[in-house]
Amino acid sequence: MFFGIDIGGTKLQFALGVNEEVFVLDKVPTPGSYCDLLKVVEETYFAAERKFGGKIEGIGIGLPGTFTKEKVVWVPNIPYIEGQDLAGDLRDRLEVDVFIGNDAQLALVGEVWKGSGCGYGNAVLMSIGTGIGGAIMIGGKVVKGRRGAAGALGWLNLDASVPGDKNHGYLENHASGSAIARAGEAQNPPMTPYEIVEKAKKGDALGVKIMTQAGHLIGAGLASIASVLDTEIIILSGGLSEEMDSFRESMDASFLEYAAPGVDQVPIVKSSLGNLSGAYGAVRLAMVRGDLWIG
């Protein structure tokens, strides 16, 4: 058995792999301290062993940030983890091997293993939610990067005349859920992102304009990364991907316009595992004992 944990800013999603089958376990609020985090993981770990009647052979963990083999370096939404030896501390407590990966990279692993990317060895995932992240797979291996954060697609720059932002990349600033939220807040009366999406679906001019612009930028960004990598498939995940119908037309048109010859035939599909893809990928990370990466 193999234990997977997708750690997010608001929730922990646990999963267990047993003979290639994945069982989704508890989803709990992210604890408020490092000690409480270790305690929740330990309790859920032993509860899973009791329930399934076996010994867990490894743990995989997805984190929304950067890290080295020894330390977690940067997790913007869970700062108490920064500087901690999460893998080592859990290894000491549970006496089992622990492997850590970037959450977006593990989401791609989950999709290629059990989701929309099955059968592909070269794939790109773009996660579109509050921000924009991503991951790149080449030859069945995920590009890790020096700090474990390769594939940060939100940093794609599509307009060098716009001043840079040290905290957010161009694509994230202009096409993420946060960008749509800002556009809604600027209206009179203000609108929520949900209201903007609903208006776009109904053909309202303002909603269509905002979502069309987001789709245009997402499509151009995907065209750039697909042209550079010559990938086989692009998978969209994250909350905004669930509303793809509201920006699909402009995204596809932009992708066709900016992609290199031949690349414009690359399929762009929605995640089939949804918000469980990271937990699936964490299970897979444990199963292969961390052997997922290049770079």
Rank of each mutant, 00 (worst) to 15 (best):
Ala214Met: 14
Ala223Glu: 10
Gly60Ser: 07
Val72Leu: 00
Ala253Asn: 10
Asn102Ala: 01
Leu63Gly: 07
Val109His: 06
Phe3Cys: 13
Glu172His: 03
Ala205Arg: 13
Trp293Cys: 04
Phe23Met: 09
Ala48Phe: 03
Asp264Phe: 06
Gly117Ala: 08
Asn157Asp: 15
Gly140Phe: 00
Ser246Leu: 00
Ala48His: 09
Ser116Ile: 02
Leu171Trp: 06
Gly221Thr: 04
Ile233Thr: 10
Val72Ser: 01
Tyr45Thr: 10
Ile7Asn: 02
Gly295Val: 03
Ser127Gln: 05
Ser127Thr: 15
Gly177Ser: 11
Ser237Arg: 02
Asp26Thr: 02
Leu153Ser: 13
Gly274Asp: 05
Asp92Leu: 10
Ala175Tyr: 10
Val112Tyr: 09
Pro190Asp: 07
Val22Glu: 08
Val197Gly: 13
Gly295Lys: 03
Ser254Leu: 02
Ile61His: 01
Gln187Asp: 11
Glu198Cys: 10
Val266Ile: 15
Asn77Ser: 15
Gly278His: 06
Phe67Met: 07
Gln265Lys: 12
Ser161Asn: 09
Val228Glu: 10
Ser127Val: 13
Ala152Asp: 11
Ser241Arg: 02
Glu232Asp: 14
Phe52Ser: 02
Met191Trp: 09
Ser116Arg: 11
Lys270Gly: 05
Ala282Asp: 11
Gly151Glu: 01
Thr192Asp: 12
Val112Ala: 14
Val40Ser: 13
Phe99Tyr: 15
Asn173Pro: 06
Gln213Phe: 14
Ala260Glu: 09
Gly154Lys: 04
Glu42Phe: 02
Ser254Gly: 07
Lys202His: 09
Leu222Gly: 04
Val75Cys: 01
Val96Gly: 14
Ala282Ile: 03
Ala150Gln: 01
Val98Asn: 12
Lys199Ala: 13
